[in-house]
Simulated scan of single mutants.
Amino acid sequence: MHSLSDEVLLLDKQHDATARVVRSLDEQLISITEEVRVATASLEEAEREATQKRGLLHRRLIEIYKRGPLFSAEVLFSAKSVGDLVARYKYLHVLTLHDKTLVHRMEDLKSTIESRRVQLVHLQNGVGENRTEKAEEAARLQALEGQRSRSLVQVQQDAQKTKARLGELARSESRLNNVIASLEATRRTAGRNAPVTASTLRTSDVGRLDWPVEGRFLYRFGRFVNPNNTTTRWNGLGISAAAGTPVKSVSIGTVAYAGLMGTYGNTVILEHGGGDYSVYGSLSQIEVRKGARVTKGQILGTVGTSDPQLGPHLHFEIRRGGPAVDPTEWLRAAR
């Protein structure tokens, strides 16, 4: 699925392509308009010449009619000598050729005029089609510009929301770190006057702890690149599960914190001794109280939705001496 940024880039490409089509149609319209001008001028010239030739032919027909069908014979038989006869014959021959040329030219002009009229109709239809297509492309271009503007506004709004969300995550993480640091400081102060309690998270538990909830990975420990190209660093795992699914302790411990924790929502922190802690966030309900001793596998609460963008899930961390470590290294049969 494309992000809004990808959509804006796609709209930019479509906008540029449509703008090129509109420019091309403008160039075609100029070219067709010039062809219409040339064709119109040629048609007008042919019609003027046809009018002139038609007048000449009309006068010649009147002359031929008035002289009658025996005119040529009378001209030849009235010759006074052989030389006069030859001259009269040549005159009649030239006159006949002139009449034939005039008739042929009239036929050519008629054909030219018909051809130019057909061409002109075709070109005028082309102009109409061009203008219609240009209007459609111009409307499409305007729609793309409006859509791009709306998408850009949406991208800017999403960027602001993402920035605000990342800020909330950073503040929540800082608060969690401060809580863990405070617990550690209290534990170390107490440790000066009492024996150090060994952690219930032993190195032999690596790769053998039961999962706190059944589900699939929503996000993993470490750096995560979001679909909008922003980066989130997770100090734990996101385990997707149905809302209301029981969340269980991975080991024996004492509830060091039970309450709201910013974007983590309802959160339980178990202290396992020796500076080790496990964190269970995004709970819909908390079933334990601060100071309570819990057993391995005991229900701490139920899966909830602390972030609508992520849906119902459990946020799970393991802390050793304060810093977060990758929980998948501790859980059984990483999925």
Rank of each mutant, 00 (worst) to 15 (best):
V103K: 12
T197A: 12
R335D: 13
T254P: 00
S182L: 06
L76N: 09
S251P: 00
T232L: 04
Y89M: 15
E137C: 07
L85P: 03
E7P: 02
E168G: 07
L183N: 08
T101M: 04
V86F: 08
I113E: 01
S31I: 09
L102R: 11
L9R: 06
E214P: 03
Q160A: 14
H58G: 10
G191E: 13
G291E: 15
L56I: 15
V250G: 02
P212Q: 09
E107M: 07
T328M: 07
D307R: 11
T101K: 09
R187E: 15
G68Y: 05
L300W: 00
N130V: 14
E45S: 10
R37P: 03
V250W: 00
D6N: 12
G304F: 02
E214D: 08
K66I: 01
V22D: 11
K290H: 11
N178V: 01
L57F: 13
V225P: 02
D16N: 07
G128W: 04
A241C: 04
A135D: 15
R140C: 09
K100M: 10
F224Q: 13
N177C: 05
E114S: 05
Q52D: 12
G291F: 08
R187D: 15
A79I: 08
S5Y: 13
Y91L: 06
A87P: 02
M106P: 02
R188A: 07
Q142S: 12
P246E: 05
V268I: 08
I30N: 04
T51Y: 03
S182F: 06
S251Y: 02
L95C: 04
A333N: 10
A185W: 05
P69A: 07
S24P: 00
T40W: 00
D99G: 05
T203K: 01
H15T: 14
V247D: 01
T245A: 02
K134N: 12
H93R: 14
T305E: 10
E27A: 13
R216P: 03
R335K: 15
R59F: 03
K296H: 05
D12Q: 14
R233M: 09
D210G: 07
Q52K: 04
T254A: 03
E7V: 00
P246L: 04
R116F: 00
V213P: 01
R192Q: 11
V206W: 01
G238E: 06
G291S: 13
Y257H: 05
Q124V: 15
L260T: 15
S174D: 09
T230C: 01
A242E: 02
E44P: 02
S5Q: 14
G238Y: 02
V103I: 14
S3H: 12
W234T: 07
L85H: 05
L141H: 05
K163W: 04
A39I: 15
G304P: 11
K296F: 01
A164L: 09
D158L: 14
S174W: 06
I113P: 00
L123M: 10
F77N: 10
G222A: 11
G83T: 15
T263L: 04
I32L: 12
G274A: 10
H2L: 11
G191S: 13
L4F: 12
H104T: 15
A243V: 02
V127C: 05
G253W: 00
V36P: 00
R150M: 11
R59Y: 01
Y219T: 13
G244Q: 03
L57C: 03
N235T: 09
I318K: 03
A138D: 13
K53F: 06
I286S: 04
W211I: 10
V103Q: 08
V121A: 07
G281E: 06
A50H: 12
A50M: 11
L201K: 04
